[in-house]
């Protein structure tokens, strides 16, 4: 019979998992609304306006529509893979959050118990996230292949090539951070970013790793299939790419994955380069607030970029990945190494 403390720990982990996944499940609901509003206002429109005040209930209406829509599978599709592909995409998107810290420890006031704001602090955290995040691509590839449609297949192929190209640059840009902080654990990486340099510059990795940040950000944009790198679902030439044959809930799973990937990319950017939950200069430390604020900014930035930049051509995408980002990231590692020596 395990003692009461381990039981509480286990219960706590279960509660944390449930809370995190509930938050993740509901997060795309406001995000779709925000994205459409941002799109609208950037294009001098209003965005959704009819369902609820300022269209705030629009995502709910969309959700209801998606739930009651007919679930169509193409006649010659690979039925099993077609069904499982959205899950292949979605599960890794959730699994990534097992290793992501949202803050250090907080003490719950009434029961006076310390609770860590992460599900687990893996000592290979960043590797785990990159590895599991990489699995998400299977959903796209298999979804594209199983649909048995030309556009979807092209989307899947593009996606696989793109993922492989940019994953390398993404990982290499993270190595710079890992080298400076001497740990693969995200918790340690964030802890090392507290304090200041020379008393007035925040000791964030963006200061020591500007090239790393630029590469990471660009590669992350490509990894999560956002404009300007959204070639797998290029509306202009592929209709909707890999999810062109999907409808109803399966389609919404893909959408969910996409938004979660965006959140993950923002969270990683904040943790790796913007000091995680450390407050900016001379601001009071509030447990989760700064983290959420920074992540929110990056989510907004992703949306902002989406409605600012046009899409790259496919060969441009490949040249950027292999001929610019990869050499630059290697250079970055070299520079970091020299600097550390």
């Amino acid at each position: 019979m395990p003692d009461i403390n381990t039981l509480i720990e286990v219960a706590l982990i279960i509660v944390k998992v449930i809370v995190v996944s509930l938050i993740l499940f509901t997060l795309p609901i406001p995000l779709t609304w925000i994205e459409r509003k941002v799109a609208g206002h950037i294009q001098v429109r209003l965005g959704p306006f009819r369902v609820g005040p300022h269209g705030i209930l629009q995502p709910v209406a969309d959700m209801i529509k998606l739930m009651f829509k007919e679930d169509i599978a193409p006649d010659k599709a690979d039925k099993w893979l077609f069904k499982f592909a959205p899950l292949f995409a979605m599960v890794p998107a959730f699994a990534v959050y097992a290793a992501i810290p949202f803050g250090d420890k907080i003490t719950i006031p009434i029961i006076n118990k310390e609770v860590t704001l992460y599900i687990s602090d893996m000592n290979v955290g960043i590797l785990y996230i990159l590895a599991v995040g990489g699995i998400s691509v299977y959903g796209i590839i298999l979804g594209g292949w199983a649909s048995n449609s030309k556009y979807a297949l092209l989307g899947g192929i593009r996606s696989s090539a793109q993922m492989i190209s940019y994953e390398i640059a993404l990982t290499f840009s993270c190595i710079g951070v890992v080298m400076t902080s001497n740990s693969l654990s995200l918790l340690d990486i964030v802890k090392l970013q507290s304090g200041t340099i020379l008393g007035f510059i925040p000791h964030w990795n963006i200061i020591c790793q500007p090239i790393g940040f630029a590469i990471f950000f660009i590669a992350a944009l490509a990894e999560i299939n956002r404009i300007p790198f959204d070639l797998p679902e290029d509306e202009g030439s592929l209709a909707a790419g890999y999810h062109v044959e999907y409808s109803a809930m399966k389609f919404s799973f893909f959408m969910l994955t996409e938004y979660l990937a965006m959140v993950t990319a923002s969270v990683l950017t904040v943790i790796l380069f913007f000091g995680g939950w450390n407050a900016p200069l001379f601001m009071p430390e509030i447990p989760i607030f700064w983290f959420v604020a920074k992540v929110g900014f990056f989510i907004y930035l992703f949306m902002w970029i989406r409605f600012t930049l046009p899409r790259y051509r496919y060969d441009q995408l490949m040249t950027i990945g292999w001929k610019i980002l990869l050499p630059l990231s290697l250079l970055n590692i070299l520079l970091t190494g020299l600097f550390l020596l």
Binding site: V38, G40, H41, I42, Q43, V44, R45, L46, F49, W304, F307, T308
Partner: peptide, 11 residues
């Protein structure tokens, strides 16, 4: 685009 975002919409 930020300038457009904060400008008044014509809708």
């Amino acid at each position: 685009t930020l300038g457009y975002e904060v400008s008044k919409s014509v809708t």
